[in-house]
Design a protein around this nucleic acid. Sequence first.
DNA 1: CTGAAAGCGCTAACAC
DNA 2: GTGTTAGCGCTTTCAG
Lengths: 340, 340
Amino acid sequence: MTSDQMRIRSARAGASVTITDVAQLAGVSESTVSRVLREKGASSEKVRRRVRDAVETLGYVPNRLAGTLASAGSNLVGVVIASLGNVVFPDLLRGVSTALDAAGYQPVIGVTDYDVDREEKLVAAMLAWRPAALIVTGLDHSPRTSAMLRGAGIRIAEVLDVDGEGIDIVVGYSNRAAGEMSAMLLLRRGHRRIGYVGHDVSHDHRAEKRRDSFRTTLAREGLPLVAETIMPSSSSIESGRDGLALLLAAHPDLDAVYFSNDDMALGGLFHCRSHGIGIPGDLAVMGYNGLDITRLAPQPLTTILTPRTRVGEVAAQLLFAGGPAETVDLGFELIEGATV
Amino acid sequence: MTSDQMRIRSARAGASVTITDVAQLAGVSESTVSRVLREKGASSEKVRRRVRDAVETLGYVPNRLAGTLASAGSNLVGVVIASLGNVVFPDLLRGVSTALDAAGYQPVIGVTDYDVDREEKLVAAMLAWRPAALIVTGLDHSPRTSAMLRGAGIRIAEVLDVDGEGIDIVVGYSNRAAGEMSAMLLLRRGHRRIGYVGHDVSHDHRAEKRRDSFRTTLAREGLPLVAETIMPSSSSIESGRDGLALLLAAHPDLDAVYFSNDDMALGGLFHCRSHGIGIPGDLAVMGYNGLDITRLAPQPLTTILTPRTRVGEVAAQLLFAGGPAETVDLGFELIEGATV
DNA sequence: CTGAAAGCGCTAACAC
DNA sequence: GTGTTAGCGCTTTCAG
């Protein structure tokens, strides 16, 4: 290799400058460079200076792959969420990201799209990076996923749901309680002919729990659900709008409708507004999540505000707090808007 | 160590079963296990079976750290976004995640909160994991960040903006063109006393470009911006609402207002509705982004729809397409709603 | 305070 | 087809 080739090689080497290169340039051993860089163990001011200079001129970026392999212990935290199309998850991520950041960890995210098999694959893939911990959504996993999580030897946080058995740390709120509270509110306000409009919840266990509990509560109180429309797609404004249209076409006499979440409810409100249906006079509407928009609108939606960002924060903190396995129910807040 | 201790150790070892353990149990060499697992090179059915069984009974999860270090080449892709509080970024991530997924890569995300220093730190941190490629938002970086990106030796995609010089791959749309188009539309519709309500754009270069171009265009057409209100916080419905209130208090005679984005514009609409200001009769309102809600509302907002999810997809694809450095302008779509 | 040596768990030639 | 031998780039004892 000519010296020209070498120059080219080192120029384009970029990220592949190694600790050996730094050591050579600084005229010290690799272990010394390592110590200086991690500020572990003592070192003389002179050596530190030389190492720092070498790092600078070489543009050395430590290879954490190698570092982690050698020392065992990465700062990666896997975060497996169900979707990015539902504000709840970005909100959750925001909390996670903030807390992880403060603790020096970095999130690696994966999106399951509510698919159990994808969750399984994702968890396996994350585990392969030997993350420091893992955050997954919900308590319902495939047996293999559960087995992997249990056997991973790292702390696991399951979030956004507390209705069920957790593996280690669980942070969330009760979707069942939310469903029940919604039913009770509608009844208390005197509504008697109640319907439900939902998205496809066959894979969204949390929405399913809300619906089941809502139904059960109504039945228990002697005023069972009159009718329901389940849209085959995931939740969206559009789907809420169309869902309500369908439901009302078949049951024009309903006096209240519970939606699977705020996006759906918003669609419902839009339908009513453009069809001259008075709210809550002609029809009461209730949602779930407490999106900013539904709370700030001129006619605020009656809904339940969930502390999802806080859930992310708390989960991320608990992961590294060294405490025992525990379930933290952060609760939720009923927003008595103007639509019920 | 007693056999009991060993059992305990291996039981809790969980993720730390190594390829050596598998090799031993299967009665083959480590390289054979490696080959079987990666389906590279030939192997007899018998051996494959034994290896698979061993993997299963041991619950072996390959360590990608080691794998990557040995083979050079991870499947991680760093994604640096500005925020999670603005729908644009989750939407972008959705596209990225979909495309990456299809290609067998995994996103590692970092959030800068519009802070250049945090961006610098994040880029360094991501580079330390030797990602296969990197996606960053915008074209405006600190000199050190730019240097790192250039010297990383991997493909870089800069997204959501095409107004400026890119490093490698650039996918987005022109914020300047959007600002200009908005100004021209308002003028064409006969508005003459135009104001602007924005969030703090000192770190949000894309919003800044829209505003500057909007202003410049108005001035060029001889009808300069009458007044503007800049809220000190990041964009939100609340801040748009309060911003418009302030602006109108000082300039009640405005006939149109351009907002820094749809969230802000929504807040403006809410203010108008609760103060009896007719839209677009008394005041025209224009936003930017084309959120679902603004398009589906009974009175759809006049705005510009940006293809952010597609941007994410295209960027992720181009990263691994092996093509040359290029800039892809995906354009945007003017949504002529009912508020102008 | 600093250096030498031995791995971390895996892949990649190269033999056999 | 399968095993052997070297590392990948770093951290970590353990000497000195």
